[in-house]
Amino acid sequence: MKRTGMILSAIAVSALLISSCRKEPLNDMTEEESRIYVTNYNDTADFTSYKTFSIVDSVAVISNREDAKKELTAYDVKLLNSLKTSLQGRGYTLVDKGAKPDLAVNVSRIDNTTTSIGYDPGYWAGYPGYWDSGYWGYPGFDYWFPSYYSVFRTREKSVVVDLLDLKNAPHADNKLNAIWNAMLRGTGVWNSDNIESMVKAVIDQSAYLKASNN
């Protein structure tokens, strides 16, 4: 018993020594520093071949706790407007979804607060609440995403914007291909004060995303 106690206290002391020596990165991290803005794109896509886009009229809320739903809060309105303005700034023309847009923009808020979900691009497309492909006039189509970046975290709120190729959808084997997507992750992504800087960041880092080369 005495020996076990000594070993345990030795472990405790060394653990204390080690942990107290550690500079903990999260301790002095601001909300702005905590956020990451990830964009994925199909590197064979010619973004200038698309001229028009349409955006969903509300935001899909995908959660592992509650039933999925579509919402249009003040935050969502601001987010959708910011995306519209940004894409128009890159030369794309906003049209009604009935007017055969070249690109569809799906917007989702993801609330993972109890279990871990992988962050491979596109995983959310399989979740209840995500935009049905029928919304874009292609019922029964699957979504297809390029897959790259993933980092995992168990509790997180995030925002996802997917740009889907409607122009080539009739010849795409029952798939709506995502050619670009943006993930806003970290602390404060659901705070409307941060929308402008977050959207600006993902657009700025996607120089190829433009309707023409001029």
Partner: peptide, 11 residues
């Protein structure tokens, strides 16, 4: 990265 860009403060 390949087909991706990540904006982050790295530590």
């Amino acid at each position: 990265g390949k087909g991706e860009d990540v904006s982050a403060v790295q530590t």
